[in-house]
Write a protein that binds this DNA or RNA. Structure first.
Lengths: 339, 339
DNA sequence: TTGAAAGCGCTAACAG
DNA sequence: CTGTTAGCGCTTTCAA
């Protein structure tokens, strides 16, 4: 493997000249510059990142910390990860993958040994303890998700409150006056700071504003739970003509269950989902949905982190505006359907 | 951040002694050893991987190259990735994530700059061109998947032929005599070396051996295609009492479609799937399945790569034996059902 | 069993 | 505009 000395010799210049051609940190005559470039190409030279990072104290590698535990939906994860890697490469930065369980000690090691410049942490439900240990690492970091206290962190997330509201707005615009909400499993609402809670709040608030009646219920991810929840919902409020679903696991069962209960989608019941795009398009009919912009999330997180690495000021909390895509599961309510 | 010199000073020894305590490459008296260890702990010292890799020419980082394009199923991907990362960490190795599209030039850069020691490449459908460029990189690599020519590579994959056979064996054991096979989309069978082809061959061969009649058809991933395929199948061969499905996208629709055609699962038609485990358990009823051992695949790939890094001889092709798990979708055929 | 010192490949003063 | 040189933090001879 060629070294910088090889290139210098080959081009008939000093090593520092080669280095400066590479970094652009001082003016070099076009003549030597191109001579050096030619030598570099000819010898197939690449700077050793080891030696380089050892001198400049910077690796151009960021760690991406993913939680192992479930509850994080797969498509979201993969979309986010590929977008993050692509965006990072675009800035000449590589991504080191770490899993959430190799927590404290491993992370310390990675920063202690100067292996990465910063952290990208994916964790919707991060708790204070983890936030604290993150801060203790002393390296710039960006959190994907929105913890209780943003306090001194940089976070990026979908604006779930706006997402919940967008669903209601859409349905109200179509003429619906009674909507049901199938939410996350019950446990998710214990934390009034979680995204489940925020979506629900946004939905409820928008419903009040628009004067539509909303009935909300938590749901588990299996068919039986979905069926039971819908039965209960339709019994309690037979006038319901629209459904907002914020539960990726349950999503696949909703239309099936509604059909089993004798309701057509759309027609008898319109459905709007809050979920990654490919989930909404893989049902039949494809669902009108507020998409969780996985790719955008990853991209923005990288951008923010790189901003911090370059000592730029970045906003502490970035909330991505929801985007509602209309598909076959929602339609204007026929005139006079709701007296 | 503490350096090795700090530790040496603090422990009252030379830097080389500290280094040797760390590497264990020469005997050190227990007295100094523990003194050095204490200083290390006290100062919170970690070896700089930059400086280290710059001298020893080894980074303890491997690249994991994932294809971006779809066709690779998400759950498989995430399971594989987390297992690989975990296994690698277990060997003190970190994982650098790369996406398949940043192909040639980026990969060259990563090896040229000495950023990684080897490659883990996930690509079921890798072509000769990519294999060649992989070999040209000149670093140890392990391929997850099985290309046409294993020639000089190290590969690990599920034994799809055995998987296809296992499905037939199971169904034949239960008494089924007529089985249908819902395969991958048509295009997947153009390559007679792909995993789709191999599963199909294994199934057909086993059917012949067991004297059961098999009818095979390709399938797209949407509900309509599945429904049409099943209609066609049942029309062509009404005696079919069992179905093998090797199509993850279609899987979710199979039971629904069978019900729409008036068949109970199990009972009228038994279903066996070849798919990742969590896909088989998320349908109702849960499906008997041959699982694609995503985690095992990742783990083995890492083990093989580390073997190569340590200059151990490793088998060129590792085929993981399929494991069939019986669930609610298959049952013994009632006596006399098939005269 | 330990230390001194050379060297890994690169960058960044310092010096023209 | 360019070269010389002293580091960066670590490993590994060589010498005791």
């Amino acid at each position: 493997m060629a070294t910088i000395a090889d290139v210098a010799r080959h081009a008939g210049v000093s090593t520092s000249t080669v280095s400066y051609v590479l970094t652009g940190k001082r003016p070099i005559s076009d003549a030597t510059k191109s001579r050096v470039r030619a030598s570099i190409r000819e010898l197939g030279y690449y700077r050793s990142v080891g030696a380089r990072s050892s001198t400049i104290r910077r690796t151009n590698v960021v760690a991406l910390v993913l939680p192992l535990r479930d509850g994080v939906h797969m498509p979201l994860l993969t979309g986010l990860v590929t977008a993050a890697v692509t965006a990072a490469r675009h800035h000449g930065v590589d991504v080191l993958l770490m899993t959430g369980d190799q927590a404290a000690e491993d992370l310390r090691g990675v920063v202690g040994s100067g292996q990465v410049d910063g952290f990208l942490v994916l964790d919707g439900e991060i708790d204070d303890e983890r936030v604290a240990s993150l801060r203790r690492l002393g390296l710039p970091s960006v959190l994907i998700g929105q913890p209780a206290a943003t306090h001194g962190l940089t976070c990026v997330d979908l604006d779930f409150e706006a997402a919940g509201a967008a669903c209601v707005e859409h349905l109200a615009d179509l003429g619906h006056r009674f909507i049901g909400f199938l939410g996350a499993p019950r446990a998710a609402y214990r934390r009034t700071t979680g995204f489940a809670h925020r979506a629900m709040v946004g939905l409820s608030a928008a419903a009040m504003r628009r004067g539509v009646t909303s009935t909300i219920m938590p749901t588990a991810g299996d068919y039986c739970s979905v069926l039971r929840a819908l039965e209960a919902l339709l019994r309690a409020r037979p006038a319901v003509t629209a459904l907002v679903v914020h539960n990726e696991a349950a999503l696949g069962w909703v239309v099936t269950a509604l059909r089993a209960l004798g309701r057509k989608v759309p027609g008898d019941v319109d459905v709007v989902a809050i979920c990654p795009d490919e989930l909404a398009t893989r049902t039949s009919p494809p669902l009108t949905s507020v998409l969780v912009p996985a790719g955008e999330l990853g991209r923005r997180a990288v951008e923010l982190l790189i901003g911090k690495l370059e000592a730029r000021a970045v906003p502490p909390l970035t909330l991505l505006a929801p985007r509602l895509v209309t598909r076959a599961s929602t339609r204007p309510v026929p005139r006079g359907a709701h007296p």
